[in-house]
Simulated scan of single mutants.
Amino acid sequence: MSLIKEIDIRNRELAEEVLKVQIPSYMVEAEIIGFSDIPPLKDTVDTLQQCGETFFGYYIDEELCGAISIKVEMGEIDIHRLIVHPDHFRNGIAQRLLDFVEFNIECKEEIEIIKVSTGFKNAPAVSLYIKNGFHKVDEVRVNEQLSLTFFEKKKLNNGGDEL
Rank of each mutant, 00 (worst) to 15 (best):
V126D: 01
I32F: 00
D61Q: 15
F55N: 07
V84A: 14
F89A: 07
V140I: 12
F89V: 09
A30G: 12
F56T: 00
S2W: 10
L98Y: 04
S69Q: 09
I23Y: 00
I60L: 13
T47Y: 02
S25K: 02
L82S: 06
E63Y: 11
R12V: 12
I7Y: 02
I60V: 14
K5C: 05
D43S: 09
T47F: 02
G52T: 07
L14I: 03
T118S: 03
V142R: 08
N104E: 07
K108C: 09
R96H: 14
E13C: 10
G34P: 07
H80W: 10
Y26C: 02
E139H: 00
T47N: 02
E76M: 13
I60A: 13
F100N: 02
E6H: 04
G57W: 07
I7A: 00
Y59L: 14
S69T: 14
A123N: 09
I79K: 13
E16N: 08
C65H: 09
Q95N: 14
V140T: 08
D46H: 12
V45K: 11
G92R: 10
V116D: 05
S117T: 06
L64F: 10
R10E: 09
A30T: 09
E162N: 14
G66C: 13
I7C: 02
D87K: 15
K42D: 00
H88M: 12
H85E: 08
E16K: 15
I83P: 02
E16M: 06
D87L: 08
D138T: 05
C107M: 08
R141E: 12
V140H: 04
L64T: 12
E106W: 08
E53D: 11
V126R: 08
E13L: 12
G66Y: 10
L82N: 06
N91F: 12
E109F: 05
L3A: 14
I93C: 13
V140E: 06
G160F: 09
T118A: 00
L3S: 15
N143R: 04
E102S: 12
K71F: 06
G92Q: 12
V137Y: 04
L14Q: 07
E6A: 14
C107I: 06
G66W: 08
E53Q: 15
N132K: 03
N132W: 02
A125H: 05
V137S: 05
P124K: 04
Y129K: 04
R10D: 05
I79H: 07
L128W: 04
R81C: 03
N143W: 05
P124I: 01
V84P: 08
I83L: 10
F35N: 08
V126L: 01
G34F: 11
L64G: 13
G133W: 01
P40L: 00
E162M: 13
V84Q: 12
D37W: 00
K154P: 04
V45L: 09
K71D: 11
V45D: 04
T47V: 01
L98C: 07
Y129V: 00
E109G: 01
F56V: 01
N104W: 02
K121T: 04
R81I: 06
K153A: 03
D99K: 14
Y59H: 07
D61R: 14
T47W: 01
L146R: 11
S117F: 11
P39T: 02
K108D: 11
M74R: 15
E29F: 04
N157Y: 11
Y129G: 04
N91G: 14
V84D: 13
H85V: 10
N158A: 03
I79V: 15
